[in-house]
Design a protein around this nucleic acid. Sequence first.
DNA 1: AAACCATGTTAGATAACCTTACAAAATTAT
DNA 2: ATAATTTTGTAAGGTTATCTAACATGGTTT
Lengths: 104, 104
Amino acid sequence: MSYKDKKVITIGIVRELTGLSERQIRYYEERKLIFPERSAGGSRKFSFSDVEVLMDIANKIEDGIQTHEIRKQMLKEQKKQSQDEIRRKMIQGQLNAQFGIRKN
Amino acid sequence: MSYKDKKVITIGIVRELTGLSERQIRYYEERKLIFPERSAGGSRKFSFSDVEVLMDIANKIEDGIQTHEIRKQMLKEQKKQSQDEIRRKMIQGQLNAQFGIRKN
DNA sequence: AAACCATGTTAGATAACCTTACAAAATTAT
DNA sequence: ATAATTTTGTAAGGTTATCTAACATGGTTT
């Protein structure tokens, strides 16, 4: 996993990076738009990816889009991504079958 | 600046990532091996680069090398790096002068 | 032997974060 | 139009995380 996805950033830093209030950040978690991990003591830990998502959310909120709608958009986007991923792997599999290095 | 160099990680997380004690991390700062930033309230903020450096330090300490010596090695390494950088830029400059795109 | 290095530990203080609850304005649904 | 929901702020009280300073100690260097 790359640095971008490591959950190492506390909420105060995320506030600084995004310009959102802690209240907003916690609320967007409640609405299942982001999924921070927790420290042993219960503090939230975010990744740079989370920060990017939050900045995206901030824009959509500014445009008057509700969290409910944002969530739908995100799920659709994720579905597209994972289908692209599946296609990519299938093509790779075909290529390997035809031209790949044999191990025997 | 890339994510790797952003100072966003608190000392507790650095402890987890490196396996060093907070005492050790603070001490290595005192010995000028790392240079965390500070939050408004005075908490240290580290980057992934800092974490990498600390893991390097941990290895050298295990080998019985003293902080004093580690610092010398690091300074030498940095000097080499910046000289490489200068050479690289000079060569690029020459290339641009001979073959570069003219703007007039 | 004296000085220094590296680390643990303790104490007390402050910063940072947590949850819960209430409030209120704005929007959406009935 | 009224009711319900959304979004955010704020406050209270509690816990976790971090800070500095100081003392202790075993190992190493001078």
